[in-house]
Simulated assay, not measured.
Amino acid sequence: MQIIKVPSPENGYLNKHAELLISSYHRWTGKDLVKPEHSDGDMYRALFQAPYAVVSHNTEDIPIFNYGNQTALSVFEMDWTEFTSLASQKSAEPVNQAERERLLARVSKLGFIDDYKGVRISSTGRHFLIENATVWNVVDARGEYYGQAAVFYKWSEL
């Protein structure tokens, strides 16, 4: 497993991956994940520093998170290395795994959903509820699949 470096000015805030997240979100939803008036470099920094949570996971049989912006890292109470080493299924309680699998299958079929609600767990065991999240397939301009991503603007401790 390869650990990706933390998004920073030195690596363009992981510009290639950030661009995939931004462009595929727009492709599926018709909405902007970050304000379009940003220049490319500022857009990727804005995504990482956004006041809402953005996460993505890869295409492994057991998907691993490969991106989490600063808000997501804070909500999940993890640093970059911990988060990008975590199987995304482990962010949900075992009792919620069936619900999670149905969600991911629905996203795979439709391209995105914008009505996700579910309980997640931070690294310290704190439970929080995500509401009205959008989950989408991460694809490039040719439609090549890179995994799935989510954005959530609202969460509350349980």
Score class of each variant (00 low, 15 high):
residue 1 M to K: 07
residue 2 Q to E: 11
residue 2 Q to K: 11
residue 2 Q to S: 07
residue 4 I to K: 13
residue 5 K to H: 08
residue 7 P to A: 09
residue 11 N to V: 08
residue 12 G to P: 04
residue 14 L to E: 04
residue 15 N to F: 07
residue 15 N to Q: 07
residue 16 K to S: 07
residue 16 K to V: 04
residue 18 A to T: 04
residue 19 E to H: 09
residue 20 L to V: 04
residue 20 L to C: 05
residue 20 L to I: 13
residue 22 I to Y: 02
residue 24 S to I: 03
residue 28 W to R: 01
residue 28 W to M: 01
residue 28 W to I: 00
residue 31 K to D: 05
residue 32 D to A: 02
residue 33 L to M: 03
residue 33 L to A: 00
residue 35 K to V: 00
residue 37 E to V: 02
residue 38 H to L: 01
residue 39 S to Y: 06
residue 40 D to K: 14
residue 42 D to R: 06
residue 42 D to T: 05
residue 43 M to W: 00
residue 43 M to Q: 15
residue 43 M to P: 09
residue 44 Y to V: 06
residue 46 A to Y: 02
residue 47 L to K: 04
residue 47 L to H: 05
residue 50 A to W: 02
residue 50 A to S: 06
residue 50 A to N: 02
residue 51 P to G: 14
residue 52 Y to L: 12
residue 53 A to D: 09
residue 55 V to S: 10
residue 56 S to I: 13
residue 57 H to L: 02
residue 58 N to Y: 07
residue 60 E to K: 15
residue 64 I to C: 11
residue 64 I to H: 09
residue 70 Q to M: 06
residue 73 L to C: 14
residue 74 S to M: 02
residue 76 F to C: 04
residue 76 F to P: 07
residue 79 D to R: 12
residue 80 W to V: 08
residue 82 E to Q: 14
residue 82 E to K: 15
residue 82 E to T: 12
residue 82 E to G: 06
residue 86 L to G: 03
residue 86 L to T: 15
residue 88 S to C: 15
residue 92 A to Y: 06
residue 92 A to C: 05
residue 93 E to S: 07
residue 93 E to T: 10
residue 94 P to S: 14
residue 95 V to M: 09
residue 95 V to T: 10
residue 95 V to F: 10
residue 96 N to T: 14
residue 97 Q to D: 03
residue 98 A to T: 09
residue 99 E to N: 03
residue 99 E to M: 01
residue 101 E to R: 12
residue 103 L to G: 08
residue 108 S to R: 15
residue 110 L to S: 13
residue 111 G to L: 11
residue 112 F to N: 11
residue 112 F to M: 05
residue 113 I to V: 15
residue 116 Y to V: 02
residue 118 G to T: 04
residue 121 I to G: 03
residue 121 I to H: 08
residue 124 T to C: 03
residue 124 T to E: 14
residue 124 T to K: 11
residue 125 G to I: 14
residue 126 R to A: 12
residue 127 H to Q: 12
residue 128 F to A: 00
residue 128 F to D: 03
residue 128 F to E: 12
residue 132 N to P: 06
residue 140 D to N: 15
residue 142 R to Q: 15
residue 142 R to H: 15
residue 143 G to E: 11
residue 144 E to R: 15
residue 144 E to V: 15
residue 145 Y to L: 07
residue 147 G to P: 08
residue 148 Q to P: 07
residue 148 Q to T: 12
residue 149 A to V: 05
residue 150 A to F: 08
residue 151 V to G: 01
residue 153 Y to W: 04
residue 154 K to S: 09
residue 155 W to N: 14
residue 156 S to C: 01
residue 157 E to K: 09
